[in-house]
């Protein structure tokens, strides 16, 4: 994987490292929302929520409309999918590695028959 892609993933993971920001992303997965709508369930001040939104915006996970009066926040699926895909690909790699390791360990421990191919 190229360096820019990894840098972008790094920013995405860092943005998602905070539980409030994860909750915001989960809320936006259900649809666009204004800052006021996002602030309500978290018991956060508007400046507090704005700080989190800025981190999410810088990472590319969300965008905010420049035109609309209430500037609703929008989840950028592609950025989220890239992070999710990377995690799932790594999980699959380890899972397949472990399947092979399991076979290897069984072969190593099998009673010697004289023609082991370990």
């Amino acid at each position: 994987m190229s360096a820019p892609v990894l840098d972008r993933l790094d920013a995405t993971f860092a943005a998602l490292a905070d539980p409030t920001r994860r909750a915001i992303v989960a809320r936006l997965a259900a649809g666009d929302a204004t800052v006021n709508e996002l602030a309500q369930p978290f018991d956060l001040s508007l400046p507090g929520i704005s700080k989190h939104l800025k981190v999410l915006e810088r990472s590319g996970l969300i965008t905010r409309s420049r035109q609309a009066q209430f500037r609703p926040c929008h989840l950028e699926r592609a950025a989220l999918d890239a992070a999710v895909d990377w995690i799932e690909a790594n999980r699959r790699t380890w899972s397949e590695r472990f399947d092979k390791l399991d076979n290897h360990l069984r072969a190593l421990q099998a009673p010697t028959t004289g023609d082991t191919d370990v």
Binding site: A17, N90, W94, F98, D102
Partner: peptide, 19 residues
């Protein structure tokens, strides 16, 4: 900023030293 990104676990039928 730090975060665990992935956790994978598996149990093998083999002694720890061998694994």
């Amino acid at each position: 900023m730090s975060e665990q990104v992935l956790h994978v676990t598996r149990v093998f039928e083999a002694p720890r030293e061998l694994v």
